[in-house]
C-alpha cells in the first residue's frame, strides 16, 4: 500500500495546496497521522508545512464536515476533504442551515472503506506491526510473520454496509468514483430486533444501553446533532437527568435517535465513537427503515434539495387524519 498511498496523498496534496497557498481557501480540513500508523486524526492546515503532514489512507474515519460548525466562525472559506459519508454529512449541515455552500470547497474522495484496528488485531491474532494493501487484500505483518485477509473483512462496521462510497457533493472529485454499492445486510440486525417480542427487545436495549457512560461522544461526532444547546443539557425543563438508570439511558438514546429521524445519514460515527461499543446504529437504522417503509425510499444527505419526509406533507402520507 505504501507506494500507492504516497501517490494518492500527493494527488490530494497537489489538489488542495494550490487553493490553500493561493488563498482560495483559508483553511483545509484534512487528516494527518496520529500517534499510531492505524490512526489518522483531523488536520487543520493553513500552511505548506501543515500540508506536509496530510494523510489519506485506510484509517481516515473521522468525519471532517462537522468541524465546519466551528471553523466557519473563524474562516471565510474552508476546504474540506470529504469521503462519501462526510459529503452526506455536509449536505445534512447544509439542509439544517448550519453551513453556507459558498463558504466551503469540497474535495471529494471516493472511499474504499476504512479499516478497523480491532479487526486487524483479531485477524492477525496479535498486535499488527504494519499492513500492505493490494487488490482488495491486506497483508498484516505481525511479530511472528504475515497474515493475509480480504480487505472487506477488515472494514469498520460503519463502512461495511456503506451504499454511497462516493461523495454526493463536491467541487472537485480527486479520484475516480467507486460507484454505488449494493448492500444486503444493512437492515439485517434491525429485522432481527423486529422479530423479538417487545419484552425481549426492551431487555436487549436495557442491557446494551446500561453500558452508556453519558460521555456524549455519539452526539458530538454526529452530523445531525447540530443544536446549539442539546436537550440533555437544558435546565428548564430538565429533560434529561444524570442518573445511570434505564429510564435516563432510554431518554437520551431514544430522543437522540428520534431527532435523527429522516436526518441520519447512516455514517456510523456515533457507533464508532462509542467507547463501550453500544450498537447505536441499530437504533438509527430502525428509523431509517421505518421512514423508507412509510414514506418511500429516502436517503438523508444525498440530495439537499429533496425535502425531508418529516418536513413535507403529501396527501397520500400514511395515517392522515382524514382517512377512514
Amino acid at each position: 500500500m505504501a507506494e500507492r498511498n504516497v501517490e494518492s496523498v500527493n494527488k490530494v496534496r497537489e489538489a488542495v495546496s494550490q487553493d490553500l497557498l493561493g488563498g482560495r481557501i483559508d483553511l483545509l480540513l484534512g487528516w494527518e497521522k496520529g500517534h499510531y500508523w492505524w490512526q489518522s486524526r483531523p488536520l487543520f492546515a493553513r500552511s505548506e508545512a501543515d500540508l506536509e503532514k496530510l494523510a489519506w489512507d485506510s484509517f481516515c474515519a473521522v468525519n471532517l464536515s462537522r468541524y465546519l460548525l466551528e471553523e466557519l466562525k473563524d474562516h471565510d472559506k474552508v476546504g474540506v476533504l470529504v469521503k462519501g459519508c462526510d459529503a452526506r454529512a455536509f449536505n445534512r449541515l447544509l439542509q439544517d442551515n448550519m453551513v453556507r455552500r459558498e463558504q466551503v470547497i469540497l474535495y471529494g474522495l471516493p472511499c474504499p472503506g476504512m479499516l478497523d484496528y480491532n479487526r486487524l488485531v483479531e485477524k492477525a491474532g496479535g498486535a499488527p506491526l504494519e499492513i500492505t494493501e493490494e487488490n482488495g487484500r491486506v497483508i498484516i505483518k505481525v511479530g511472528s510473520g504475515e497474515q493475509e485477509a480480504q480487505r472487506d473483512d477488515l472494514l469498520l462496521d460503519k463502512c461495511k454496509d456503506c451504499r454511497y462510497p462516493d461523495p454526493a457533493v463536491y467541487d472537485q472529485l480527486l479520484f475516480s468514483p467507486q460507484g454505488e454499492k449494493e448492500v444486503t445486510e444493512r437492515f439485517k440486525t434491525v429485522e432481527e430486533l423486529e422479530e423479538m417480542s417487545a419484552e425481549e427487545r426492551f431487555g436487549y436495549w436495557e442491557k446494551e444501553l446500561s453500558r452508556c457512560l453519558r460521555c456524549y461522544a455519539c452526539r458530538q461526532a454526529c452530523p445531525f446533532c447540530s443544536c446549539r444547546e442539546c436537550f440533555v443539557e437544558q435546565e428548564n425543563p430538565r429533560w434529561q437527568g444524570r442518573a445511570y438508570q434505564p429510564s435516563e439511558n432510554f431518554m437520551f438514546h431514544l430522543v437522540r435517535a428520534y431527532h435523527g429521524t429522516g436526518r441520519c445519514i447512516d455514517c456510523g460515527e456515533c457507533e464508532r465513537s462509542c467507547p463501550v461499543d453500544i450498537p447505536l446504529q441499530e437504533l438509527n437504522r430502525k428509523l431509517i427503515k421505518d421512514i423508507n417503509e412509510l414514506y418511500g425510499d429516502y436517503e438523508a444527505g444525498l440530495d439537499p434539495e429533496q425535502e425531508p419526509p418529516l418536513l413535507t406533507y403529501r396527501p397520500d402520507d400514511p395515517a392522515a387524519f382524514s382517512e377512514k
Binding site: L213, C215, S273
Partner: peptide, 16 residues
Amino acid sequence: DELYKSCLGCGVCTYV
C-alpha cells in the same frame, strides 16, 4: 490554539 481544534467536546477521555 492548535491543540484543542480536533476536540469534539465529548467526555470519552475523562470517563475512561
